[in-house]
């Protein structure tokens, strides 16, 4: 066995860091100093991967799904490249304990929003911070000439022309709108069907 660990380009095109090819990365490290670096590496890997593939949701069950190698198109498989390494002998999968602690850290650092609220086994990932998303949202409204009209949340996350906001989960969208509302760049309009929002230049 060689001693050199190299980055690996996954089939999706994402470049996995060399530590992903190291067997011990997948077991929870009981030494707190060691775990500090391990959890940091997992956190940045998961955020980078989510951003690369535009994945919004991460759940504790994704680790099991990755290990079980669920079929194409299944919800578990889109995370498989990151959470699992089939090239190691035997293949390794991120332990549930690491994933749980990493998700908790992501929530604590405003990089994930529990969805549904008040639990930590399923989250929406903020691979851009909420304030960053607010900026993207406002710019999109200006560029597409949709200021001063009322838009539903569905219209924003399912625009006719594909945008950076396409597919954005409602909980994240609402937080970004709230940031804009605080600075007078948007107004939330309560109403049926989830309500709407009006953007100001």
């Amino acid at each position: 066995m060689g001693l050199e660990l190299a980055p690996y380009q996954a089939p999706s095109g994402f470049l996995l860091p060399s530590i992903h090819s190291w067997s011990a990365f997948y077991t929870y490290q009981p030494n707190p100093r060691t775990f500090l670096t391990q959890s940091q590496d997992w956190t940045s890997l998961l955020l980078a991967y989510a951003r690369f593939r535009r994945l919004w949701l991460l759940a504790l069950s994704d680790a099991d799904a990755a290990a079980a190698g669920l079929g194409e198109g299944g919800k578990g498989t889109e995370w498989a490249e990151a959470l699992h390494n089939p090239r190691l002998r035997p293949p390794r999968t991120i332990s549930r304990k690491i994933l749980l602690l990493v998700i908790e850290q992501l929530i604590a650092s405003d990089r994930a929003i529990p969805d549904p609220p008040k639990q930590t086994s399923s989250v929406v990932l903020c691979w851009r911070s909420v304030p960053e998303w607010a900026g993207v949202l406002h710019e999109w409204a200006l560029k597409t000439g949709q200021t001063n009209t009322i838009l539903t949340l569905f219209e924003i996350s399912n625009p006719a022309v594909e945008s950076e906001l396409s597919g954005m989960p409602e909980v994240l969208l609402r937080r970004a709108i709230a940031v804009l509302a605080r600075t007078g760049k948007a107004q939330v309009i309560e109403g049926g069907e989830g309500g709407g929002v009006r953007f100001f230049p």
Binding site: L3, E4, L5, A6, P7, S18, I19, W22, S23, A24, F25, Y26, T27, Q29, P30, T34, Q38, R89, P90, R92, T93, S95
Partner: peptide, 21 residues
């Protein structure tokens, strides 16, 4: 680092002898 997913049971890995490219 400890690894509990190896075939032979608990295995320890030494990061300092690896080259991280």
């Amino acid at each position: 680092w400890i690894d509990d997913q190896a075939e032979e049971g608990i295995v320890y890995w030494v990061p300092s002898v690896m080259l991280w490219a």
